[in-house]
């Protein structure tokens, strides 16, 4: 059997202020070019888990192994195989982007070519000579992603990599993450942006309050949330709501113009048409609400998300 790249068992972290940020978490991730989403609401413990993985904080209990090696005692032997971005980009503001990367690269003797490549990959080549302090949020984030690529790592851990990126940047990063995955690396991405995970990840873990609440292939998760909701477009939503309510449908008014949400399985959507047509109201469109991770997420974390 192949060794898991990430093997976390019974992880707990109690901060000194009494917050139990992680409360008995197990994660097993097999090697192979897959992208693993690590999803959870704010304060769920994603960043704390990642810091434990990287030896930045010391778990209160539990074992953390990467590549089969115990992080607490032997991290130096495997750190060269790991690239990571934790929370926010952290660099010296008075040094240029390139110099910041160079300093990290020199710690382990990475070739300068790798710096050029990494800068190129994140589209920062032409601004790499500018001081980090003058970068925009998105540029800082790109530099941090470039830093994770320098070691040509087998395992890439990204904590909310899309933070601060514009739509074009998000698409680029999404593609980058996918290509990292398909080049045989294991990618572990945390996010609370559900659409993001849905579009980039193969597998997803959902945590809340420091506990794993669901794990599986993204496709499976999505089908879990397969919706029974139909989005109906009519000229006069108020009238439609009245008619459908009278006919016993579960209707939700929504703020969008000319739109009504009706709770009913797609197979029975024709009943909506019939009920409305009977009152001389004709809908101009109807489609099933997209099955999304969001719904699964909200459902699963309901009542657990708030602190």
């Amino acid at each position: 059997m192949q060794q898991p790249v990430i093997d976390v068992r019974g992880l707990r972290k109690d901060f000194r202020n009494g917050v139990a940020a992680i409360d008995g978490l197990d994660i097993q991730i097999e090697a192979g070019g897959r992208v693993h989403g690590f999803l959870g609401p704010n304060g769920a413990g994603k960043t704390t888990t990642i810091r434990c993985l990287l030896g930045l904080i010391r778990p209160s209990a539990g074992d953390v192994k990467l590549f089969g090696v115990d992080v607490a005692s032997n991290l130096p032997s495997i750190i060269g195989r790991i690239g990571a971005l934790v929370e926010t980009p952290k660099f010296f503001p008075n040094f240029s982007g390139r110099k910041n990367l160079q300093m990290l690269a020199d710690v382990v003797g990475v070739r300068s070519v790798a710096i050029d490549e990494a800068l190129d990959t994140v589209g920062l080549s032409d601004r790499s000579g500018d001081k980090f302090g003058t970068y925009s949020l998105g540029m800082k984030q790109r530099l941090a992603i470039a830093a994770t690529l320098l070691k040509d790592p087998e395992l890439i851990i990204l904590d909310e990599p899309a933070n601060g990126l514009d739509p074009a940047g998000i698409v680029e990063i999404r593609q980058l993450i996918r290509s990292l995955g398909s080049s045989g690396r294991t990618v572990f991405v945390s996010s609370h942006q559900l659409g993001e995970v849905q579009q980039t990840c193969d597998e997803v873990m959902i945590i809340s309050k420091g506990r794993l609440i669901r794990q599986g292939p993204v496709s499976e998760m999505v089908s879990l949330g397969a919706s029974n909701k139909q989005i109906v477009t009519v000229r006069d939503p108020a009238q439609a709501i009245r008619i459908l309510n009278d006919a016993g449908f579960n209707v939700q008014p929504v703020p969008e113009p000319e739109t009504v949400h009706v709770e009913i399985p797609a197979a029975r959507a024709d009943e909506i048409t019939k009920a409305l047509a009977a009152h001389q109201v004709f809908l101009s469109g109807m489609r099933p609400a997209e099955a999304s991770l969001e719904s699964v997420f909200l459902e699963l974390t309901e009542g657990q998300g708030e602190l």
């Binding site: 930045l56 750190i79 926010t88 952290k90 660099f91 010296f92 710690v107 070691k151």
Partner: peptide, 16 residues
């Protein structure tokens, strides 16, 4: 300066 910029964390990802 390292604590202000948070770069200690980065450094430890290269030399733990």
């Amino acid at each position: 300066a390292e604590y202000r910029a948070g770069t200690v964390e980065n450094l430890l990802l290269w030399e733990p």
